[in-house]
């Protein structure tokens, strides 16, 4: 495999999945082209200004900033459905429409759903 697409469709902090996806994506940067796709409730990870100190868990937005070379795409229709259109989003992310999102999946050698 030369490229991998991690698909995240669950909200951050509700389960370990978002953290797991970020970690797996980060280690995969070593030797592969990595894309992390946020879909469905996964798009909540795109919101800026996350503060997880009271939860006692790592700040997931910070992990996105730390691994700036990780390509993260956000499924726009999911953002629109959740009325996140007017929210401030993390600036390193790329917004993609339905077509581009699926093109990115198809263009990757493998798809890993967490």
């Amino acid at each position: 495999m030369k490229s991998v697409f991690y698909l995240l469709d669950t909200a951050p902090y509700s389960s370990e999945k978002a953290f797991g996806a970020l970690n797996a994506a980060a280690v995969s940067l070593n030797g592969m082209n990595v894309t992390l796709g946020l879909y469905g409730d996964g798009v909540y990870l795109a919101a800026a200004g996350q503060d997880s100190r009271k939860l006692g868990v790592p700040n997931l937005a910070d992990i996105l900033y730390a691994y700036g070379e990780l390509k993260v795409i956000v499924h726009e229709p999911s953002l629109v459905e959740r009325d996140l259109l007017g929210e401030t989003l993390i600036e390193t992310l790329e917004l993609t429409d339905e077509e581009d999102f699926f093109e990115a999946i198809e263009g990757s050698d493998c798809l890993i759903l967490l």
């Binding site: 726009e76 007017g86 929210e87 401030t88 989003l89 917004l95």
Partner: peptide, 12 residues
């Protein structure tokens, strides 16, 4: 402004 930023954050 946020709506505009959102609108312009997409290449298409």
């Amino acid at each position: 402004t946020k709506l505009v930023n959102f609108a312009m954050a997409n290449a298409t």
